[in-house]
């Protein structure tokens, strides 16, 4: 019962978070100078009358608050409106872009977190100075080298000089770059956490019981480190959003990141809002799932 209540609480908190992010984005969009009509006007030379007429048709002349209410009531029914520039339903555009981003995000996340876990576990198990060095190296790399720099360098080396990989559309390079960046952010804390978990009194008890090293690792060390592993994975996912934006632009992947960036340039509010909403809901969803998993793993939290 208590456990159910705490899970419900986590879900509720997630919903409130998502709502706040969406509202904030809506109003921040309007703080940007100029709107879509200004941009189209610059590009296509609309007359002042045409601009006024266009604003009226798009509902941009309404008070901000009533625009927000309209947008929310439509969005709740799954209608994100039409793109102001391309005159297509936003939901169609999202549906095209989402799978690209999801595939990319999933692969990078799996690679990054998998690598970090593997290295941290190996470094703890073998107490190898060489592995410790590697972990510090990846950590420094992720702090010091921005992903777009690594992206340019990779394109230059592997696509242009060596000609091994395509510049456009290939997933291998961006996945490795973002995965490495993700791994670097979490691998060090992960290793420290595992090293501490190995020294925990209840792990010593397990050794005193004469259990095998495998049994100790799986039943006693990993559960103790699981909460922090989950939290770090969540952190890595957050970094993924920023990472996928640059990588999609750099490697011309037609995902949410590219879509959003273009929409921001064109002041295409419905797309910006829809994309941010999707990203926010996804992140909040993931964080909520992590929170719930944490509560399920640790009986003390229930």
């Amino acid at each position: 019962m208590d456990r159910l209540a705490s899970v419900l609480f986590a879900v509720l908190r997630g919903l409130v978070q998502a709502a706040c992010i969406v509202a904030l984005t809506f109003f921040l969009c309007r703080v940007m100078p100029g709107d879509v009509v200004d941009v189209l006007g610059l590009e296509g030379g609309l007359t002042a009358d045409q601009q006024v007429e266009m604003r009226r048709a798009l509902g941009l002349d309404q008070p901000l608050l009533s625009q927000f209410v309209t947008w929310v009531s439509h969005a709740l029914q799954g209608d994100f409106g039409r793109s102001l520039r391309f005159d297509q339903p936003v939901s169609d555009m999202l549906a095209n872009a989402l799978p690209v981003t999801l595939r990319f995000a999933f692969l990078s996340f799996a690679f990054g977190v998998g690598l970090a876990l593997l290295l941290a576990i190996a470094a703890t198990a073998f107490r190898s100075r060489w592995l410790d060095g590697l972990i510090d190296g990846i950590n420094i790399w992720s702090i010091a080298v921005p992903t777009f720099c690594a992206g340019f360098a990779a394109i230059l080396i592997f696509s242009i000089w060596l000609g091994w990989l395509p510049v456009i559309g290939g997933l291998l390079m961006p996945v490795i770059i973002i995965g490495l960046d993700n791994a670097g952010q979490i691998v060090k804390s992960l290793r420290e956490e595992l090293k501490e978990a190995v020294m925990l009194p209840h792990v010593r008890t397990a050794r005193a019981k004469g259990l095998s090293p495998w049994r100790i690792a799986i039943a006693h060390v990993l559960p103790a480190a699981a909460p922090i592993m989950l939290a770090l994975s969540g952190l890595a996912l957050g970094g993924l959003v920023a990472g996928s934006l640059t990588m999609e632009v750099l490697f011309a992947l037609p995902g949410i990141g590219s879509l959003t960036l273009n929409a921001i340039h064109g002041r295409d509010y419905p797309i910006i809002l829809a994309a941010v909403t999707v990203i926010a809901v996804a992140l909040v969803l993931i964080n909520t799932v992590i929170d719930i998993l944490h509560r399920l793993i640790d009986p003390r939290l229930a």
Binding site: L200, P201, H202, R204, T205, A206, A208, A219, H220, P223, A224, I297, D298, P299, R300
Partner: peptide, 13 residues
């Protein structure tokens, strides 16, 4: 062996 602090010496999970 029976250790000192049973709270932390038992696996909480």
């Amino acid at each position: 062996v029976v250790f000192q602090d049973p709270m932390s010496c038992l696996n909480p999970f």
